[in-house]
């Protein structure tokens, strides 16, 4: 039984969830604000990864971050290694699939908070940031956490985009879902079994927790 792909998956998923949290919550908050320009367009662009084929997404990421792209060149001159076909690439590949879930969850749970409560905070002397941090966000936190858990589950299982962007390099970018594919291809089903079990249990437990979080309306 190989533990390394699972450990790598866990590492990638945690990093991808953290990155998705920062980007996704900010974007979700911006989209929840009624005066943000171009909200509908941005929402579509951010949500598209949920429905596009992984190969198409992977292609875009390669174009954006590949060794000849401006971002790829900048990154390589700073760190000495490329983004694609490295662990960084695997993390970013996972972010592409996971972030939309955080954006969606953040936006909808922030929009579900009674706007009067935020206005009340403002009349009590809170600037926009303090009102967000102390009233608006805490009241939406349950939904945001549910979104983050889904994002984690999604990152843990990414296959297509990771394969396109990071390849399938054992010890470097071979995450559990890629290792399962290799094991089945090589007729080593025993190697795959444990990883399959771990990924399945993790997903089921996370989804159960998400449902719990979403069903309890609010707080107290």
């Amino acid at each position: 039984m190989e533990w390394q792909p699972l450990a790598l998956s866990l590492q990638v998923a945690l990093a991808a969830t953290a990155l998705s949290a920062v980007l996704g919550i900010s974007l979700g908050a911006a989209l929840a604000h009624p005066r943000t320009p171009g909200r509908d367009l941005v929402d579509v662009l951010v949500t598209a990864p949920l429905v596009l084929p992984p190969t198409v997404l992977g292609y875009y990421v390669l174009v954006a971050l590949g060794r000849r792209s401006p971002l790829g060149i900048a990154y390589e001159s700073l760190t000495g290694s490329s983004i694609v076909f490295t662990k960084t690439g695997a993390i970013l590949a996972a972010v592409v699939g996971a972030m939309p879930l955080v954006v969606k969850a953040s936006r909808s749970s922030l929009e579900a908070v009674d706007p009067t409560l935020v206005l009340a905070a403002r009349t009590l002397g809170a600037g926009p940031l303090r009102a967000f941090v102390t009233v608006h966000f805490p009241l939406a936190a349950r939904g945001v956490i549910a979104g983050l858990m889904l994002a984690f589950a999604r990152s843990l299982g990414d296959f297509g985009v990771t394969l396109m962007v990071a390849g399938d390099i054992p010890g470097e970018t071979q995450t559990a879902s890629l290792a399962i594919y290799d094991a089945i291809q090589g007729q080593r089903e025993g190697d795959a079994a444990a990883m399959i079990a771990v990924l399945t249990i993790t997903a089921v437990v996370l989804l159960y927790a998400v449902n719990k979080l979403n069903s309890r309306v609010h707080v107290g």
Partner: peptide, 11 residues
């Protein structure tokens, strides 16, 4: 401002 809904922070 005392709102009609009172707007007490539930948390």
């Amino acid at each position: 401002y005392v709102f009609q809904s009172l707007a007490l922070f539930p948390h």
